[in-house]
Design a protein around this nucleic acid. Structure first.
Lengths: 149, 149
DNA sequence: CCTTGACCTTCCAATGATGGGAAGCCTCAC
DNA sequence: GTGAGGCTTCCCATCATTGGAAGGTCAAGG
C-alpha cells in the first residue's frame, strides 16, 4: 500500500505520515525496490489511532505515550486514564481562558452602539480596562499560554 | 524611555516590541544617537493597547485593524463592533471544539477502571471509535483547525 | 516502445507568536 | 576607567502542518 492510499485510509495526510516517521513517532516504513514506502493494514490502524488521538486534542508527545501503551499488552489502564485525565484538565484550562475572553468581549460588544459614531466602549476598554475587566483578567492570566494550541 | 522600560510599563516584552516593529504592526521607533530605541508615553499607550487586545485573544492582523480604528477619530463604532463580534464567534467555535473533546474524553475516562489491568475503553476508542464518538466528532469536524490557537 | 499524468521521493521554506542566546556596543554608577 | 547591566542585530527553536520544487516511478493507452 502506497503512502497516498494509507493517507486516504487513515485520514492522516501523506505529508504528516512522513513527518511522524521522521520525528520517530512511528517506525520507519518498509520500502519497495523503487524506494516507495509500503504500508500494511496494521500500519494504517496505527495511523488511524494517531489521527483519532489528534482529533481529541492530544499533543504528539502524549500520543507517543498512548501508542506505547496501546502496543503494551500488559499496560495498566490506570496509566491511560491518567494521561487522558490530565489532558482533560489542560483542555478545561484552555476553555476557561477562552470563556473569560468571550465574557469580557460580550460585555463590551453589548455596550457598543455599533453605529457611525466614533464612541466605542470596546476601544475605550483596550485603552484603559475597566475594573470589571481587571476582575476577569487578573495579571496572572495575562500573557501566558492561554492562546496557544 | 528605553525599550526595557517601555516593556515593563506596557507588559509587552522587549522581544515582542521589536517583533511588532519589524512586522509593521507598530511604526519604527525613534532612535537616539546611540542607536537605542526611544519610546514616548504615547508609544507605551499603544503597546498597552496591543497587550490588552492580545489578552482578549485577538490575532495580530485583527489588532492591526483595531489600532487603525483606535487612531481614526472619525471611526464608526460599528466597525469595531463587527471585528469584536466576529472574534467572539471564532472563540466560541474553538470553545465548542474543545468542549466536544472534553465530553468525549470525559465519557471514556469515566468508563475506565484505572487499575492495573490492561482493558481500557480509552484505548479501545482510539482503536475504533464508538458510535457515540461518531456523533460527537462528525467527519466535518475532524482534521480541521479545531486545535489551532 | 513511448508518452503522459498521477504518484512517489527528498529537501527547503513558511506559518504565528514567542523565547533563547551569542557577539558586540552603550551607559551609568562607583 | 571599569564592571554590570541594558541595548543592538542576527540566528535558531518551538509545534503541527502545508506548500512547493526537482527529480524518480508506475500504469494505462497510443
Amino acid at each position: 500500500m502506497n503512502i497516498g492510499q494509507a493517507a486516504k485510509a487513515s485520514g492522516v495526510s501523506a505529508k504528516m505520515i512522513r513527518y511522524y516517521e521522521q520525528t520517530g513517532l512511528i517506525p520507519k516504513a518498509d520500502r519497495r525496490d523503487s524506494g516507495y514506502r509500503d504500508y500494511s493494514p496494521g500500519d494504517v490502524n496505527m495511523l488511524r489511532f494517531i489521527r483519532r488521538a489528534r482529533d481529541l486534542g492530544f499533543a504528539v508527545t502524549e500520543i507517543n505515550e498512548l501508542l506505547n501503551l496501546w502496543r503494551d499488552r500488559s499496560r495498566h489502564s490506570a496509566d491511560v486514564k491518567r494521561i487522558a485525565q490530565s489532558h482533560i484538565f489542560e483542555l478545561q484550562d484552555r476553555i476557561k481562558g477562552l470563556n473569560q475572553m468571550v465574557d469580557t468581549l460580550q460585555g463590551l460588544v453589548s455596550c457598543c452602539a455599533g453605529d457611525d459614531r466614533p464612541d466605542c466602549p470596546i476601544i475605550a476598554d483596550l485603552e484603559e480596562p475597566s475594573s470589571d475587566r481587571a476582575l476577569l483578567m487578573p495579571a496572572s492570566a495575562g500573557i501566558g499560554r492561554l492562546r496557544h494550541r
